[in-house]
Simulated scan of single mutants.
Amino acid sequence: MEKIRLEKVLKEMDKENIPQMIISDPAAIFYLTGKWIHPGERMLVLYLNIKGNHKLFINKLFPIQEDLGIEKIWFQDTDQPVKILSEHIEKETIIGIDKNWPARFLIEFMEQRPGSSFINGSYILDKIRAVKDEREIEYMREASQINDLAMEKIISLISHQYTEKNIEQQLMNIYEELGAEGPSFAPIIAYGANGATPHHEPGHTRLTEGDSIIIDIGCKKSSYCADMTRTVFYKSVSPKAQEIYHIVKEANQKAIAAVRPGVRFCDIDAAARKHIEGMGYGQFFTHRTGHAIGIEVHDFGDVSSTNTDTIVPGMIFSIEPGIYIPGEFGVRIEDLVLVTERGCEVLNHFDKELIVID
Rank of each mutant, 00 (worst) to 15 (best):
K11T: 15
R129P: 00
T78F: 11
K72G: 10
L178A: 00
A190S: 03
E334K: 13
A28M: 14
R141D: 02
A103T: 14
G330Q: 04
I247G: 00
P198N: 02
G192L: 01
D133M: 08
H349V: 09
I355M: 13
Q169Y: 11
A150Q: 02
H246F: 13
D267I: 05
E152P: 03
E277P: 10
I158V: 08
P26R: 07
T197P: 01
T340V: 07
I4V: 14
E296F: 13
D227K: 06
E277Y: 03
C266G: 03
P198H: 00
N49T: 01
F62H: 11
A258W: 03
E111R: 15
E7T: 09
T229N: 06
W74A: 10
V339H: 04
G278A: 08
P19Q: 05
R129G: 01
S184H: 06
D14R: 12
T33Y: 01
F30I: 08
P39L: 08
Y31N: 10
S222N: 14
Q76T: 13
A257P: 06
Q161T: 13
I94D: 08
F75D: 07
H199E: 10
K240P: 02
I58D: 02
I189A: 02
A271W: 03
K165Y: 09
A193P: 04
L336F: 09
Y139D: 09
I323P: 00
A255V: 04
V248W: 08
M21A: 05
A270D: 13
V337K: 04
I137Q: 04
V45C: 05
K11I: 12
D299E: 15
F118M: 04
K254Q: 09
G314C: 02
P81L: 09
L125M: 07
A196F: 00
I155S: 07
V297Q: 06
Y191I: 01
K153M: 10
D133F: 06
E181P: 02
K352D: 11
S318W: 00
H298R: 14
L354K: 05
K221R: 10
D358M: 11
K132S: 05
E168M: 09
K3P: 14
K153A: 12
F350I: 15
I316L: 08
E90Q: 15
G262P: 07
